[in-house]
Amino acid sequence: MKPLVRNAALSSYVELGQSVGIDPRALMKRVGLDPVGLAAQDRWVSGDAVTRLLELAAATARREDFGLLLAERRRFANLGPISLVLREEPDVRSALALLVRHERMYNEMLRSRLTEAAGLATVRVGLELGEFHESRQAVELAVGTFIGFLREFLGPRWQPVSVCFTHAAPRDLTTHRRLLGPVVEFDREFTGIVLYASELDTPNKLSDPLLRDYARQYFESLAVTTDTTELDRVRELIEVLLPTGRCSVEQVAGSLGVDRRTVHRHLATTGETFSGLVNATRTQLAEQLVANPSRSLTEISGLLGFSAPSAFSRWFREQFGTSARDWRARHAAGADPSAD
């Protein structure tokens, strides 16, 4: 399947879009992304769709600096679990090397590389899209995010030696120079950030040596499970889409950047079907939700994607052999809700 990115890649997208006079949610729908799913920062969505969305937003707002403005709103935590470990690394070199080495934990499109020569360090940044189309905004978002990351360690006044892009210069360089530094070059042979290698030796003042080992152990336990399968991705998307009432194989396929036949084909290799996964996900969620007395059964019906409470009631009885109301009562009494 095509590369995916965490929903966190669009963190603050809605707020930025509104501030520049566009309808950000309408544009998301045009590229097949569900605005409701933005609340789940750790969910994975199509990197191709995100790239097209950023280009569409920039063109609609007539802001060639849209990607950079989005990078300006980035926070350290947007990187996800890896941010917990980066904060405890002893110096900038170690933190940056870790970020580059585990980039697929937060963005499957990103291809970055750190090199050092002649007293300079270069962070080369690229995107692997799966197919060719304009990606200027996504590239500048990635570069701007790296700059923000480095300033977390080197201070807000730090400036790189230069920032280079392979694409042409925008008409107005104001935002680029404000956020990237005074030396921003275009039409270069590579995209990336150049800084003094000695700056990589800067100690991390936030690091606590006593916490470092714990942070690394926690991260390594997560890294072992980062090879998310297509089946896992479909399950996650089903869970996100159910409350919207638009949980269909077409919606899931759109979020993954493929067609519905590809989804069916990948599921078939694992012996699963889309309808089977939807039902299994509903069953798992129903047990959790019905057990919570603070949620009404009508509300639960909607969260599970049913068009009406009566449809939920029929489904629940078929799955659990009893009504949701009786199941909840048995659970509250401490009895086995599934017992006859």
Rank of each mutant, 00 (worst) to 15 (best):
residue 222 L to N: 01
residue 270 T to G: 00
residue 226 T to P: 00
residue 257 G to W: 02
residue 198 S to W: 10
residue 260 R to A: 15
residue 193 I to F: 07
residue 243 P to D: 03
residue 255 S to F: 12
residue 197 A to H: 05
residue 218 Y to A: 14
residue 196 Y to M: 12
residue 247 C to G: 05
residue 192 G to R: 00
residue 214 Y to P: 01
residue 206 L to V: 02
residue 191 T to E: 11
residue 202 T to I: 02
residue 231 L to W: 12
residue 230 E to S: 14
residue 231 L to T: 10
residue 195 L to I: 15
residue 190 F to S: 04
residue 200 L to N: 05
residue 251 Q to F: 04
residue 207 S to E: 02
residue 189 E to C: 06
residue 270 T to D: 09
residue 199 E to G: 05
residue 236 E to H: 05
residue 203 P to T: 05
residue 237 L to Y: 06
residue 216 R to G: 00
residue 237 L to R: 15
residue 274 F to M: 12
residue 222 L to R: 08
residue 239 E to Q: 11
residue 244 T to H: 13
residue 245 G to D: 04
residue 227 D to G: 05
residue 277 L to H: 06
residue 191 T to Q: 11
residue 255 S to Q: 14
residue 259 D to H: 13
residue 191 T to P: 01
residue 237 L to M: 11
residue 191 T to R: 01
residue 204 N to M: 02
residue 265 R to P: 00
residue 206 L to S: 14
residue 262 T to Q: 14
residue 258 V to F: 01
residue 216 R to H: 08
residue 200 L to S: 06
residue 262 T to S: 15
residue 233 R to Y: 03
residue 238 I to N: 07
residue 249 V to W: 02
residue 212 R to F: 09
residue 218 Y to P: 01
residue 216 R to S: 03
residue 229 T to M: 09
residue 258 V to T: 08
residue 269 T to H: 11
residue 282 R to L: 11
residue 280 A to D: 11
residue 216 R to D: 03
residue 273 T to M: 05
residue 236 E to L: 06
residue 227 D to T: 10
residue 205 K to S: 15
residue 196 Y to I: 03
residue 256 L to Y: 02
residue 278 V to Q: 07
residue 211 L to R: 12
residue 197 A to L: 06
residue 245 G to K: 04
residue 261 R to V: 12
residue 210 L to R: 15
residue 230 E to D: 14
residue 272 E to T: 02
residue 257 G to E: 09
residue 244 T to N: 07
residue 242 L to C: 04
residue 244 T to E: 07
residue 193 I to S: 02
residue 226 T to H: 13
residue 229 T to Y: 09
residue 223 A to Q: 13
residue 204 N to Q: 04
residue 243 P to R: 03
residue 281 T to R: 13
residue 226 T to V: 10
